[in-house]
Amino acid sequence: MAKSVGTVVIEVDACKGCELCIPVCPPGVLSMSPSVNAIGFRYPILRDGCTGCELCAEICPDYCFEVFRAAPSRASAEVTA
């Protein structure tokens, strides 16, 4: 199992299921849920391996993501390409 140096908190009930976050996730650790949220949409769920790169938060039109990253110094996992 990949060690997670970051994580996200997802405001699930604000999600409208657009899926824009899924393809932009560099480690590919987001996938859509099989179940639906309170307003009837599938929503992203996170597996281990998040780098805290923030790209999901950058693309999410519904402001669902809060992003956390491990504090100690390390090579940036941020993808800028």
């Binding site: 994580t7 908190v9 997802i10 405001e11 769920i45 281990d48 809060e66 992003v67 491990a70």
Partner: peptide, 25 residues
Amino acid sequence: MATTGEASGPAAEMRKVFTRSPLLG
């Protein structure tokens, strides 16, 4: 309802690097 990758929420050594701007209410 909020969900994270880890059942217990972000670990203590994690710091918040992205959150919704307060100007968005």
